[in-house]
Each structure stands twice: as C-alpha cells, then as structure tokens.
Design a protein around this nucleic acid. Structure first.
Lengths: 340, 340
DNA sequence: ATGAAAGCGCTAACAA
DNA sequence: TTGTTAGCGCTTTCAT
C-alpha cells in the first residue's frame, strides 16, 4: 500500500522514458532485448504493478465484463443454474485475462439500471444477460446505446442481438417423447410464467411432440409452477385433483419436478405418476425416486457467451452471433417404467 | 457509445468551470442553488455519466470490492453455500453503492495470484475471502502489504485479521447433543479435511459434547468425507463395515449427509441410522428421509462481511473486527426418533 | 461560491 | 529503437 511505484519510477530506475516502460508492458516487439531486460529488472526491484484504472482511462477499455442477473429472491440461487453458468463464464474470462463484475438485481427494473450504470460509467466493456423475457426494455436500450452484450437465452424481437441458448424446443420434445415411449398418453405440463422464453420454448417442444403423435392437447393439463419447488408441489396437487389426472408430467425445470415428487409423496402416490424435469441439478439424482431429467450444458452456455462477448469486444467477430447448444436426456427411475 | 459527454462538455454547456461540475457531482454544499440547477440541467441534456475510471484514478479508490473463491471444481457451486453467501455480499454492497468483482479460482495458488492482482492493480479497494485453511499464505501477504480484507471463517494465527464466522463449535455440539438426546451413544463423525478450520471446529463441538456426557471418543468412528456427496457415501459404507457400527452419524456438511443417506439406502438400512447434516441446503428437506441439519446464517455471513469491509474502507471502523453469528438446529425425520 | 491549474498513472502519436 | 508531448476524465488545492 503506502505508495506504489508508478511507470515513471520504473522509467527513472531503468534510465529510460515512461513510454519505453509502457511498451515493455504492452509486449511491443520494437524494443531491444537489453532495455527490455533493464526495465523488467527495475519493475521487479520496485515491485511495480500497473494501475488498471489509469490504463482503462487511457485505453478506453476496462478488460472487464459485467454479468447481471435478475432473480426474485426465492428463485435466486436455489437454482443451481446460476452458479454453474457463472463458473462457465469465469473460466472463459480467466483464460482471456478478463475480469468479471457481478451485479445481482432483485427486479427487472433494478437489473436495467444496474446494467446501464456499469456500461455508462465505463466500468465494463460489455455485459452478459440472463434474461428470458420476451419483451425486454433493457435489450432495446443496449442496442440503442450501442453497448456490446450477449444474451444467455434468445431475443426473438431483436435479430441484431447476439445470444447463446440451449435447444429448448428439442428439450420439450425429448422429454415428451420419452414419456410417450413408456406408454403415456395423458401427459401434463408444469411450466413457468408465459412471458419467459424458456417456458414457451419448452412448451412448444411438448406441443410439437404430442401433435406429431396425434395426441390431443388438453389445456387442463397445463399448469404454471412459477419455477419454484413450492409451485411445483402446488401444481401437482392441482393436477391430481383433476377428474382425469395425468399419468405423466413434464416439468420444465428440476425445482418444480422436485416439488411434484413431494406432492406425489404427500398423496401416497410416489412412483405412480411419471415425472421428468430439466437441468440435471446435482441433487436430483438422490430424490426419491431419482429424477429423470434433461441435462442442459449450463457451464458451456456460460463459457460460450463469454467467449462470444470477448470476440465481439476485440473485433475478432462483427455482427450478431447466435448459437444453440444441445441437451441430453438422462433417464432415471422417476419415469423409467412402462404404463399399464 | 460513440462519444460520451465529459465533465468539460457539461461545464461548457452550463457556463461554469469543470471543478464546479465536479462539486455538484460530489454533492458539495458550497454551491449556489442556481448553478446547481444549471449544471443538473446540462447533465441531463447531454446525458452525462461520470467516468468511473477517471474518478478512481483521481481519488485512488474504486468503490469496488473483490470476492475470491477457491474451490476445486467438484465442490465448486454444487454446494449452495457460495451462491447464498454471494447474495448476502451483493445485497450489502448494493445498499452502499459498491461494486463486486468476482474471481473464481480452482486452486489456492490461483486464488492467491488472482487476489493479489486485483489489489495491486488497484482494481478493488479490498477483498472478501472464503478461505478456511489454517495456515494461509494469502492472508500473510495481505497483512504484509496492508490491503484491507475480511474473512468469512476465521484466522487463528492472525489476530490482526477481521473476520465473520458462524459458531462452528456450537454447531458440532448442538448436533451431537441432539443425537444423544435421542438415546444414541455410538455417534460417528463424517468430517472434512483436517486442515480446514470449519472441519476442526465442528469436530471440536462434537468432541466437547461427547466428553461432557462422559462418552468415550472412538477414533474408528471418525471418517473424512472430503466435503462431497460421494465422499459421504464412501465414508458411510466404511462406518457400516465396522464390527460395531454407529447408530448415529454427524456429518459436518449437508452434501456428505446426503451421501450418507444414499449409502444407507444402498445397504437397505434407510432410517436405521440417524443422520444430521449442516447448512440447511434447500434441497435437503426433500431427501428420503428429510434431513435433520444445522442451519447456518449464510446470507448474513456474506452481508456482514461486506458491511465490515466497507466500514474498514471508509475508516468508519479501525482495527480488526471479529464477529460470530449463531446457527440453529432444524430437526427432521432423518434423526427424529429414539433409539430403542 | 466559483475558477484556474496541476495532477492521478498510463497510452499513443509524432519525432528523432 | 527510443524519447517527447499531449491527452484520457475527473478531483483538488489554491486563489479570488
């Protein structure tokens, strides 16, 4: 602390000009081996470390990206999606020497102001968003103000946006087809709010699969579970109260699937209704019964988003990039039996 | 993007000097209402946003703190402790207008370099560490270089360090006493590596409780589960293979407790050995059987650490602060029966 | 209450 | 290959 050495101190100690030190720092090749050596020695001697703020100011770039996550408290981090996506982002950034500023917002409004603040104050060079809303004011703002960003999800109304997403329609189809292959015909859907794209897309896959199989859609079999465990429990009870309850349920997220399992247990019906979730949360392998689920490449989603953003920032890539990553069905006991 | 307005632009537009604009920005009172108004108007007009880097450079403070987490991949974020502690930190920082730079390291060595880099390059004003090792080189460095930091955990060898911790000894005692109250006398311990303080402290509570009750310590009943689910399963199998197996097991973390439950299920012994975990991971309520656990105030741990760090940075508090937060037993079915 | 001017530590032409 | 000289955008004495 006390008083850190500056580039001038190093220059003086090495008997060169500050700009020469700067060149050494930047790894310029237009520098003689001898001076390079002298400068390096002076740096070591003085324990010199370049000041990132000064550099950012001069270069108009921070080498930092922002990650903004808007989650109501109850969902927050209970859902392991977010930690895992962060790990992916972190690993890509680390590999490229970038830093990560994390901002956790409780509401979309907070998210918007926090995100714009980071960008406008030049604290970050670009941002990664995990929004999933169909209509997003923040995205409009980012495009209007020309800030670089990458979405984890997709933005149907904004063709100019870069994003990386998993194949949510395929996810829904995979889960539903798996259940049909086990003889089910009355397959319910526990989904999330209809203004989220994940929810819509996974439902679409469900609808597609049923339609292809010539099965009718039953609106009474579609319930919103709000992406929470409790919501899943509530939704499952609702379904069980139906005159003709489903024999299988596709839950578009593990948390709700786990909630559904609880409801079944409460009704003494464990194992009599097939359940499929999505995400492959590490703990779902040990639910009772172990949960069949569709594994999303969450880590890769994060890593890819970060990579795309950095490529955009460095100009290695121009124009929007849109990438879809594949998912994979993991069959466990909660659905692995045949109806009848 | 294009070209952002600077303080000079605002000054020109308002017909004042840049320093005056700066004063408005800083909320100085030595400024007339009229000029204040003029300046505010110009800012709005020009969509002015102060540049954080320039400010940091001039003020030698970033208003940003760093959070460095070292976790081998397998533990990483599977353990909900980290997301939750981050939420706590985030909420306190948000309230004070601070930013958070997150750095995820895979090894202690990476953690050390990443942390020191953040500080030395003046990217952050201070850091929060979640280390739990007894002897930590990073902490020595931080103290030597006089960087502000707060630990989540404790640092017995460094009385000058600020930290916030939960009452781990009480945690161990609580769990053990609960098991004794249900008639158990052969109580095993599945712990973590002996070089982590959490592990040692929770074991200490276990030892204390047994000793107070006049029960002997049986070294064969103490197994290292490495803080992972798989480790817990392995450890439980080991215990079950003993000539005199335990009737109850205190696992110092939920992940291992869940692993232990799996081992019991694999051996067809579910419900015949009492299990207690620590953390109250949201998903443990739905294990089979639901897990008794000690709830740690994880969010508060994070929020308090952030608050203490900011108080240190702003000089509101000087000298080390050391805070212990209480935990709470949550009895569920995995242990709630009496040995007969 | 306000302005002028000198930095904060680094980069980037432009010269030499 | 190296040095000189302006900035980058903001804060902060020191005057007035």
């Amino acid at each position: 602390m006390t008083l850190l050495a500056t580039i001038k101190d190093v220059a003086a100690a090495a008997g060169v000009a500050p700009s020469t030190v700067s060149r050494v720092l930047a790894g310029s090749n237009r520098i003689s081996p001898q001076t390079h050596e002298k400068v390096r020695a002076a740096m070591k001697e003085l324990k010199y470390h370049p000041n990132a703020n000064a550099r950012s100011l001069a270069k108009k770039a921070t080498h930092t990206i922002g990650l903004v996550m808007a989650r109501p408290v109850e969902q927050a981090f209970a859902n392991p999606f977010f930690p895992e996506v962060m790990r992916g982002i972190g690993s890509a950034l680390y590999a490229q020497g970038y830093n990560l500023i994390l901002s956790m917002a409780a509401t979309p409004a907070e998210e918007r102001t926090a995100c714009l603040r980071l960008l406008r104050h030049s604290r970050v060079d670009g941002v990664i968003l995990t929004t999933s809303r169909i209509k997003d004011r923040l995205i409009d703002d980012l495009i209007k103000e020309e800030y670089p960003f990458v979405l984890i999800g997709r933005a149907p109304e904004q063709p100019a946006a870069s994003w990386v997403n998993n194949d949510n329609i395929a996810v829904g189809a995979m889960a539903t087809e798996h259940l049909m292959s086990r003889g089910h015909r009355q397959i319910a859907l526990i989904s999330g709010p209809p203004d989220t794209l994940v929810s819509l897309d996974r439902r679409q896959g469900y609808v597609d699969a049923l339609t292809r199989a010539g099965l009718p859609l039953r609106p009474d079999l579609e319930v919103d579970g709000g992406f929470t465990k409790e919501g899943g429990t509530r939704a499952m009870h609702e379904l069980l109260n139906l005159p003709t309850p489903p024999t299988a349920v596709f839950c578009i997220d593990d948390a709700m699937a786990v909630g559904a399992l609880i409801a079944l247990k409460e009704r003494g019906k464990s194992g009599s209704v097939a359940i499929v979730g999505v995400n492959d949360d590490p703990l779902t392998a040990l639910t009772d019964p172990p949960l069949t689920t569709v594994r999303i490449p969450v880590f890769d989603l994060g890593a890819t988003a970060a990579t795309v953003l950095i490529e955009t920032l460095t100009g290695r890539v121009t124009g929007p990039r849109q990438i879809i990553l594949p998912s994979q069905l993991v069959v466990r006991e909660s659905s692995n039996w045949t109806l009848g």
